[in-house]
Every structure is written in C-alpha cells, then in structure tokens.
Design a protein around this nucleic acid. Structure first.
Ligand code: ZN
Ligand code: ZN
Ligand code: ZN
Ligand code: ZN
Lengths: 139, 139
DNA sequence: TTCCGGATGTGATAACATAACAAAATGCAA
DNA sequence: TTGCATTTTGTTATGTTATCACATCCGGAA
C-alpha cells in the first residue's frame, strides 16, 4: 500500500473514531508511510527537524504513541522501528514478515497464531509476531 | 524448570556441541535462570559487579550473545530482557507467554505459528512470538 | 618457547526512550 | 467574548539499552 492511500485511510479512520490527527501526527505518519520499510524514531526526528527545528525526541515518540494507539502504525519490536499499517484500525493482531535482505515488510492480519499451544487459562491481551527471513524477491 | 536443572542441562548441551561454557558465561546463565522472570542486562551487570568489579556492559552483553547463540537463553524482544530456556538447544522456534501481572514466562516449543498465512515464497529464518496477557493465577 | 585465537577487561560513545514542567492551542460553556 | 479545562506541543534534562575499538589475558598447537 502506498503512502497517499495510507494517509487518506488514516484521515477517514480518525474522523470516524473521533481522534485528532494533528499536522504533526500526520507528518510523522506520512514519513513512516513513505519509508516503505521499518523506520527508526531518530531518523523520523531528523527528518521532522529539517522543517521544525523545535522537534526533540518526545515530539516523535509522542506522535508514534498516538499513531500506534490509533492503529495506524505498528512497532517492530526486534528492530526498534516502526511501520505504517496498511489497514487502519484493524486491531492489534498483526503478523509481520520482514525481509532481512531488502527490509520489505508484509503485514498479515486476522491470523491468531500460537493459540493452539496456549497454556491453559492464559488470557492473551497483545501479541508480538515477527517473522524474519527472505522475501520472494530475495531468495 | 528450576535453575540447577537448567545449569546441568546447559553443561550437557555445551559438552555435546563443543562450545565453551566459561565461568563468566555460567554465572550469567545462572543469574538468568534463578530470576525466574525476564531479567534486564543491566540488572545482571550489577549482580555480576558485586563479585567482579571489572564487569562492564560488554561483559554481560557478550555472555548473553553467547548464551542466545547456544540456545540457552531467549531474548524477550518487547521487554528488552532475557529468560533462560527450559530446554537447551531446541532451536529458535520458542513461543513465549508472558504474564503482565506476575511476570511469569511460559515457553512453548515446536509450534510453527503464523505459517498458514505466510506470503508466497517467504523463507522464515527466525521468528519472534511473544504473547502478553494474564496467566492462570492472575486472572 | 612462540605464536595464535578465543575470551575478557576497559574506556568511550552510540542508540533508544522517558520524566517533568512550561507554554501554546483548542474546544466549550457561561 | 471571555474564562476555563483539556489536549497538544515545546523544552531541558536524564535514564536506559547497546555497541565500538583497542588492550590484555590465557590455553593450546607448532
Ligand atoms: Zn496493521
Ligand atoms: Zn526481500
Ligand atoms: Zn527455548
Ligand atoms: Zn501471572
């Protein structure tokens, strides 16, 4: 999914859910979406900083927290990085396939993996599922 | 699994595979195993430091890297923490269930979740699978 | 003994993230 | 419109996590 579509989708989603996609947050989302790869918080910061010298770490981390809560961005835990979600607000059940050669990330939704072997009476609130390897183009 | 059993298991595993479980590495593994919970690198460092004032961050990170490569310890990505593996050298397919109330971690092996929705021709090298929620005792 | 490679020691710094408080912007009701 | 509460952003500082680069040590092979 490309950046303009993600932005448009995000606008719709935020209108519907009543959360405020401010210019700063929109800018951060746009940078994440354009990256087309997992992007680091401090890389975002230096990009924002070119237009807005007042940008500091909390600026970008707060925006990212908002975007994650809103379901517009996912955190890639094992990379300390962030990707735009191709389907705004689908919930937190994303499964990520991350190519270590070209950095491309493919997101799969709706799967509820691992539940088969779940310990008895364990209640899952949130899952982190990241598969690292090689995509079709990088075999 | 308790700490002495994990240590004994680790000795066996290292003998068999020919890797060197040095005193420092054994000490770090022992600290991780005793913790019975995800433990932070700098917490390990301060514990080591009580006996060995020369311990510095690379000391503990190198030991942890070794233990992870040897399959004796897993990194909990979303916590920046480490847990002892209850079954030395089973491979890297661990699925972790992490209770956010009592920090207890249950490891399930052998599951290959998420593969059903895998993008065509994606070759998975390593998976990070962490489920956060409440264990049976903490409902 | 000498050399070599793996392991550890050491100091510095990079990379990632949050706390705490101030100021500004926004929305709303009187 | 004015005042007030709430949210958002600015700002300074610091906390936390991780790695680099180079030195030293130590055990085994030649
Ligand atoms: Zn998503
Ligand atoms: Zn690729
Ligand atoms: Zn394991
Ligand atoms: Zn629990």
């Amino acid at each position: 999914m490309n950046a303009p579509d993600i932005l448009e989708d995000a606008e719709r989603h935020c209108s519907k859910t009543g959360v405020r996609l401010t210019p700063l947050r929109r800018r951060v989302l746009e940078l994440v979406a354009r990256a087309n790869a997992p992007v680091k918080a401090y890389d975002l910061l230096s990009q924002i900083d070119r237009a807005n010298a007042s940008a500091k770490p909390p600026t970008v981390y707060r925006a990212l927290d908002f975007l994650i809560d809103a379901g517009l961005v996912h955190r890639v835990e094992a990379l300390n990085a962030f990707v735009a979600c191709p389907q705004a607000g689908h919930g937190h059940a994303a499964v990520l396939y991350i190519c270590e050669a070209c950095t491309k990330v493919t997101e799969v939704q709706g799967a509820r993996p691992g539940q088969e072997h779940k310990p008895r009476s364990f209640t899952v609130k949130r899952s982190v599922i990241e598969h690292y390897g090689r995509c079709a183009n990088c075999q």
